[in-house]
């Protein structure tokens, strides 16, 4: 680990922490929204769909700016959080995680939704006739069968969080040790006259982490497919 400076190590650690939290916290609501979109019909469904997908199509800076307006020190939600819970997203790693989570959310939802839609509804009906209530059907049948898609979605979300730049820097700035993740650190290094070596090292880390995430997800998916392959 001697090839990295202490600052770089802090950045890598922070990046992993931010991405992991962004993914973990996004998962439960992401799965819930994906299930609703896949299995329920209701008026205004298109609006929910559009809202979820907005971060994917809007410039990230716009998403970051909207977050700043809502959750910043002056934002209504930010003020409410600070006065009632004494908690703030502004200029710390939780803000970076929030920005990363929101940017990764649509990718997560898309992947999970597709895999839930591909679960045979006949199996859910069979579970119903065996006495399982709708919540149990989701837990015991739908989600286990959708697991490959959930894993793939989580990896996509994690990778997106690792690479998130625009929304994070707009919302919580690029403060080393506090909110500076890998892309921010690479960007900073490039701006410095002697920073190219550091930028190259961090780029290598970014590539290694992304590929690692991809490989892990491939491996898990293949294992699950194999198990289900026996089952079909």
């Amino acid at each position: 680990m001697t090839i990295f400076t202490p600052d770089e190590l802090t950045t890598i650690q922070l990046s992993l922490k931010v991405s992991a939290w962004a993914t973990l916290v996004s998962l439960p609501p992401g799965i819930a929204v994906a299930w609703v979109l896949a299995r329920r019909e209701f008026p205004g469904k298109w609006l929910l769909d559009v809202l979820i997908h907005l971060p994917l199509v809007m410039p990230p800076v716009v998403t970051g700016y909207l977050l700043l307006m809502a959750f910043g020190r002056q934002g209504p939600l930010g003020i409410w959080l600070e006065t009632t819970l004494g908690f703030t997203f502004a200029f710390n790693w939780t803000g970076a995680a929030l920005a990363c989570g929101i940017m990764g959310f649509p990718l997560l939802v898309r992947s999970v939704r597709l895999s839930i839609e591909s679960v045979d509804r006949g199996l859910e009906q069979a579970a119903n006739t065996l006495g399982a209530n709708p919540a149990w059907v989701v837990v015991r049948v739908t989600l286990p069968l959708a697991l490959p898609g959930i894993l793939a979605g989580a990896v996509l979300c994690f990778a997106k969080a690792l690479g998130e730049f625009g929304a994070t820097i707009t919302f919580v700035s690029n403060i080393p040790g506090l909110t500076q993740t890998l892309p921010g650190a690479i960007y900073n290094s490039i701006q410095l006259p002697e920073g190219e070596a550091a930028a190259l090292r961090l780029t290598g880390v970014a590539i290694a982490l992304s590929m690692g995430a991809l490989l892990v997800s491939e491996w898990l998916t293949r294992r699950l497919r194999k198990r289900e392959g026996q089952a079909r």
């Binding site: 199996l123 579970a127 119903n128 006739t129 399982a132 709708p134 289900e228 089952a231």
Partner: peptide, 20 residues
């Protein structure tokens, strides 16, 4: 009454065993 409260078993043409 929703199906899970009816206590009515169902054997489908295509068996519908849970593959996992």
């Amino acid at each position: 009454m929703p199906p899970h409260r009816r206590g009515i078993g169902y054997v489908f043409q295509d068996s519908r065993l849970f593959p996992h």
